[in-house]
Design a protein around this nucleic acid. Structure first.
Length: 855
RNA sequence: GGGCGCGUAGCUCAGUUGGUCAGAGCACCUCGCUUACACCGAGGGGGUCGCCCGUUCGAGUCGGGCCGCGCCCACCA
């Protein structure tokens, strides 16, 4: 081994730039695609959403994955660690709209010379064609993606940067479309005109998984319905009086005596005088309101259930834009006993927004005397699209679905095959699957996404034949049916009788991200690669997207490949503010990741991140980063000491404490390795860190004197133990602190520490086992205990640590005293002790007599 | 209402099969510039381990019940 080259003043400054460039140059993290599957460790990296900037939460969870990746690489695995960018979908569209001041209008023709408005804030959004809009989306995401990569490199992610993908890219579109066509062919995907969750602002269908509850104030209205066959009436309570025109029935619980007489009869809706039946359903809750409930098409998902199960008619009043439709009172389906009045009443509502309609309706009900009492303010949870600003509505529309309900049992079984880290996260998955109440709606009436690769014939009368979809041949993928033409048709036939129409929708963003293992692994174009990496070893992700990303990925893999997509799921928590709330976007932007890395250094930030246990939400804590930095600095300095050129390294470990040290290191190696095998990177670091500080505080001090003796056996033995242990510590810390570890490794070792082999107990050259080994181990422990007491005495006497000690009397058990004999010389050296005496005792104690000062 | 997680020093958290488990780091205070390190070192104070019952020779550690916090789901007329 060449002699080490240790800088005079080691520093952390500049290590990120220096080593990330070096790693790039030498391909340190490039994937060896010739490795057989059993030597491959493949990671289904989460593609971060490209809609602005990465935040602290990303830094947190991606560091966890990187630590595991680095560990596996050092274990000799070929690590498949790609990076994806999730750039398709609504977040990008919304950002492009705001950034450029445009909105997409598919009816506008493509303009090749289009330039975005100069000052977007001033005018109404400019309507642009879909191709122009998509071009703007691509332009914006491209620059974001470059910034993201820069951050990841600074953070030190050991990604193979030749393996990146985007969810809007051709490869992703091809995989996505091919999978969809397969599902369609096998009957796992189907189209249906049905009540669908709908966001009135984005004007698109949304999925159950994309809903969230928000607490909103509302009002409970008590409304009287008149009996159709005579006197009396029925009272219902509703928070949505604007939907009374869409009422199709009243329901009571079958056992509810109060309403028994009404059931089976008809009532008239107020203002519109439409006859609706009074029926029963077991899901009606007697305790709520009057025990009578109004069914509308559709006020909420419960309405859909009742409507479906009781075979009720549809009377829709709500348009796709969230305004009330015109409806033909008196026509079939819109019967009224007083059409004139119905028309007059409804004229107040048509065209109004939901909120406007509600206010007017309440006024009209009050005027007509059908409103009983005053509306009572209530606060209740309302379903919102997670990215939306107004409550979701339910409207009837034609959508694509993928079957999930039929596969629920298979999915639960797959969830049990999967190894969850931490294990309790599986409950979230099972709860979600068991709570599913409909198939997955995958179509979105949006623009920046993967189009459905489908056309429809148009018959001679101009009717689109949705039940006869035309699919492209696989070689044509990806296709955009809004510009591409199906085989056998000419472009001029688009939209004409006897011609064709392209499916206008794009897929839900999860419909593409649910295929990340196939996209990243090259399922479509690189089967050789795919065979080596799929099923993948691990899916790292946060717990909030178990119901979306994790769930849909398992579903797609089950439907397409019939297997679980990965063996392990490593779930990360969230970053919380110091006040325990989830770190918000606004606050996250104050503390930008790049700022953090510049202020504390990448290793320090990574240290904080990996201190967050798997699955645990973790407080943002700059203090922890300082601790991490201290550890990195300590490693620099300890390495400098251990590699110092003073005494040559000996061939043998002649000293008991040196052998004992390596036995301790062996324990740490064992624990750190076991923890990593369980994906518990935090524990691995904890054990290593604790041992390393102990090593610095005690072992280094105990052998320091011996090392300065000169060319003795003892000095040579110490040098040897120091180097063996240092090598182990540098490698044990490398997954966490890649920059400083690479730096100190480079002082004395060839190649990258990140390609070095993970430490193993066998390499430590443990010579002394059994009883004698145990005694040596104990000697090191007792020596450290005594040294601590000596330091304490000096500290309390306000003396410097090098102050001489005349005499130390150690009281301890005979076994420990006997062991201490092995470390007597080192202890005397470390504590500058003239005389050490031993006295057997039941309890450990130490008497310290400091030497009289010279003056 | 159901599920999951959490409640241990001022703060952030370890405590894996019950028996030196009452700990670490930070913060605070005191001392020390000793040839790896002042981006440092040595030392100190500080907690009835949320509460109550049980199991046990013995319980942060197991069981039951409460209380509080968080998340997810359901309900949301």
């Amino acid at each position: 081994m060449a002699s080490p080259i240790v800088p005079e003043r080691p520093t952390l400054d500049g290590l990120e730039a220096k080593w990330s460039a070096a790693w790039e140059d030498s391909g340190t993290y490039s994937f060896d695609r010739s490795a057989p599957r059993e030597r491959v460790f493949s990671i289904d990296t989460p593609p971060p959403t490209v809609s602005g900037s990465l935040h602290v939460g990303h830094v947190f969870s991606y560091t966890h994955t990187d630590a595991v990746a680095r560990y596996q690489r050092m274990r000799g695995m070929a690590v498949f660690y790609p990076m994806g960018w999730d750039d398709n979908g609504l977040p990008t569209e919304r950002r492009v709209q705001n950034h450029y001041g445009v909105r997409c209008d598919p009816s506008v023709p493509y303009n090749p010379a289009f330039e975005p408005p100069v000052d977007p804030s001033e005018k109404e959004p400019v309507a642009v064609s879909r191709p122009n809009f998509v071009a703007l989306c691509l332009q914006l995401t491209d620059s974001d993606e470059r910034a993201f990569e820069e951050l990841w490199r600074t953070l030190g992610l050991s990604v193979d940067w030749s393996m990146t993908y985007t969810t809007i890219g051709a490869a992703a579109q091809r995989v996505s479309q091919r999978s969809f066509l397969g599902l369609l062919a096998r009957g796992e995907a189907y189209q249906l005109e049905a009540p669908t969750l709908w966001d009135v602002d984005f004007r698109t269908a949304v999925a159950q998984a994309e809903l969230e509850d928000r607490e909103r104030p509302g009002a409970m209205h008590r409304v009287r319905f008149a009996r159709a066959d005579g006197d009396g009436g029925a009272l219902i309570e509703t928070t949505r009086p604007e939907l009374i025109a869409a009422c199709v029935a009243l329901l009571a619980h079958p056992d509810d005596e109060r309403h028994r007489e009404l059931v089976g009869r008809e009532v008239r809706t107020p203002l519109f005088a439409t006859r609706v039946p009074v029926m029963t359903h077991a899901a009606v809750e007697r305790e709520k309101g009057t025990g009578l409930v109004m069914v509308c098409t559709f006020g909420d998902v419960t309405d859909v259930t009742w409507w479906r199960e009781l075979g009720l008619p549809v009377r829709s009043v709500l348009g796709l834009d969230g305004r009330l439709l015109e409806v033909p009172w008196g026509a079939p389906g819109w019967e009224s006993e007083d059409p004139e009045r119905a028309r007059a009443s409804y004229a107040e509502l048509a065209g109004a927004t939901i909120n406007q309609a509600r206010r007017r309706m309440v006024e009209m009900l009050a005027a007509s005397g059908d409103l009983v009492g005053d509306p009572q303010p209530v606060s209740r949870a309302v379903k919102f699209f997670e990215k939306g600003d107004r409550p979701v509505e339910i409207v009837t529309s034609r959508q694509w679905f993928i079957r999930t309900i039929d596969h629920a049992d298979e999915l639960i079984a797959r969830g049990r095959e999967l190894q969850w880290h931490p294990p309790y996260m599986r409950a979230r998955f099972e709860d979600w699957v068991e709570g599913l109440n409909g198939d997955w709606c995958v179509s979105r009436q949006r623009f920046f996404g993967v189009p459905f690769p489908i056309w429809y014939p148009i018959d001679g009368s101009g009717t689109v034949l949705y039940d006869q979809p035309i699919a492209p041949t696989p070689e044509r993928l990806p296709v955009d049916p809004s510009t591409d033409v199906p085989d056998g048709y000419a472009p001029e036939q688009r939209g004409r009788p006897g011609g064709f129409a392209g499916d206008p929708d794009v897929m839900d963003t999860w419909a593409t991200s649910s295929l990340t293992p196939q996209i990243a692994g090259g399922a479509d174009e690189d089967r050789e690669l795919f065979e080596r990496v799929f099923p993948m070893d691990v899916r790292p992700q946060a717990h909030d997207i178990i119901r979306t990303w994790l769930f849909t990925t398992i579903l797609r893999s089950q439907l397409d490949e019939g297997v679980l997509p990965w063996r392990h799921a490593a779930i990360s928590g969230w970053v919380l503010d110091p006040d325990r709330k989830k770190m918000s976007k606004s606050k996250g932007n104050v503390v930008t990741p790049m700022h953090l890395l510049e202020e504390h250094g990448a290793d320090a930030v990574r240290y904080w991140a990996v201190k967050g246990r798997p699955g645990a939400d973790t407080t943002f804590d700059a203090q922890q980063m300082k601790v991490g930095r201290r550890l990195a600095v300590k490693l620099l300095n300890a390495s400098k000491f251990a590699l110092a050129d003073l005494p040559p390294e000996g061939r043998a470990l002649t000293q008991p404490l040196d052998r004992a040290l390596l036995a301790r290191v062996a324990q740490v190696v064992d624990e750190a390795t076991r923890s990593f095998e369980e994906y518990d990177y935090t524990r691995s670091l904890d054990r290593t860190e604790e041992a390393f500080w102990w090593y610095c505080d005690y072992y280094l001090e105990l052998v320091k004197g011996r090392r300065y003796e000169g060319a003795t056996d003892g000095a040579a033995s110490a040098s040897r133990a120091l180097r063996i242990s240092l090598s182990a510590f540098q490698r044990l810390l490398a997954p966490f602190l890649p920059f400083v570890c690479e730096e100190v490794w480079s002082w004395w070792q060839p190649g990258s520490v990140h390609r070095a082999s993970w430490p193993e107990v066998g390499e430590l050259g443990l010579e002394c086992a059994g009883a004698e080994g145990a005694r040596e181990l104990l000697a090191l422990e007792v020596a450290a205990d005594v040294l601590r007491e000596v330091r304490k005495a000096k500290s309390q006497a306000r003396m410097p640590m090098r102050a001489p000690v005349a005499r130390v009397v150690v009281h301890d058990s005979p076994t420990r005293l006997q062991a201490l004999e092995l470390g007597r010389g080192d202890l005397a050296n470390a504590g500058t002790i003239a005389s050490i005496e031993c006295q057997p005792a039941v309890e450990f104690s130490v008497e310290v007599e400091l030497a009289q000062s010279a003056d």
